[in-house]
Design a protein around this nucleic acid. Sequence first.
DNA 1: TTCGTTTTGTATCGGACGATACAAAAGTCC
DNA 2: GGACTTTTGTATCGTCCGATACAAAACGAA
Lengths: 202, 202
Amino acid sequence: MSRPRSFDETDVLEAAIDCFWARGLEATSVRDLAGRMGINGPSLYNAFGDKRSLFMRALEHYAVRSMRERIGRMERLPDPKAAIAAFFGELISASLADPDRRGCLIVNTALEVAPHDPEIAILIAAYLDEIEAFFRRALVRAAAGGDLAPSVEPTDMARLLLGLVIAVRVMARTVSDRSRLDGMVRPILALIQARPDIRTPA
Amino acid sequence: MSRPRSFDETDVLEAAIDCFWARGLEATSVRDLAGRMGINGPSLYNAFGDKRSLFMRALEHYAVRSMRERIGRMERLPDPKAAIAAFFGELISASLADPDRRGCLIVNTALEVAPHDPEIAILIAAYLDEIEAFFRRALVRAAAGGDLAPSVEPTDMARLLLGLVIAVRVMARTVSDRSRLDGMVRPILALIQARPDIRTPA
DNA sequence: TTCGTTTTGTATCGGACGATACAAAAGTCC
DNA sequence: GGACTTTTGTATCGTCCGATACAAAACGAA
């Protein structure tokens, strides 16, 4: 019974992600959203409730198809240290390749929305925890294989790596300079790559 | 000749900083600004032109009284490595002590405004360069004093430290967890503090 | 005092915002 | 073919936005 929907929910959520990703929550108008999604205002409200609810749906969709996808792909690599390096390689290349400098929707939201919206802040904190947990698993795995310098403490290093993800994403929103981003992560990747049985070069 | 202004420009700029710092450029209305600044809308426009011009004035004022003030104070410390550590100590404490989670106006602006406003992006890039340059000077000074491990390359490490500043400021907008922020900077500060004549503990 | 200049206060301007009322349309079920 | 339900399209709703027009007010200059 009832009239069927004229749009695919995943498709219009992707379009909503495009809007929110580039402009943020407040600066994106419902008319912008409806136009990009190819539907009318009332259809948007009927399907998603209000702008904030649509934003949360889009954020969740982004986290699955972007963040978790990359984490899952990296976690399948045999070498955990190479997985961390590849993670940042992809992150920097993707950030530099985007002419709109959109950065990361999660990081953007952490800064724009989280301080004023406790419910969304909880979502963001959980997503950031997932990234940190990925790094920690990789580091613990490397340490278990005897591949990590003992001075590298997995918990703190995972926090630092999460911080680097945030820093790369924020920097890439202002400047497009590969040497700057590469240089930022280089000392840390070198610290991780160092084998425990090889002395730090004098 | 002419009627004198009823307000002090520095005072109202401080009030404008409070607004923009907490809510950003777009989310702060001219009525919010005028209310906090204690003046009327037309006075605001008469004195500052428009909202964006006021924002740039407030940003410049913030950079001087907040960023450069801290850099100048840290640079006067005799030990450059201690200056770097103290810089982050202050940064983290200030971030955690703010109940409004305002973070840093420069970092907030880098994420909110810079991608869509090339002129402001140039200002932000210059401010970030100042922070990076401060770290680089401190590292070069430490190296010249024989106090820095040779594996620490000042240029890249300065970029990394700038990244850490950004990361601390963004993280503190979402979570209030000192152990998280301390843990994030701990591996780097340990790397910098390590004396070149002392072997990394096995 | 009168003139000239700038600032201040009141009252808006047109437009964009988020969100809806309402009826026509497009389906399923009997 | 009707009855029922949900979606769609049109036309708004009241509110807030950035920005001003205009005149009264407050000063220095003459």
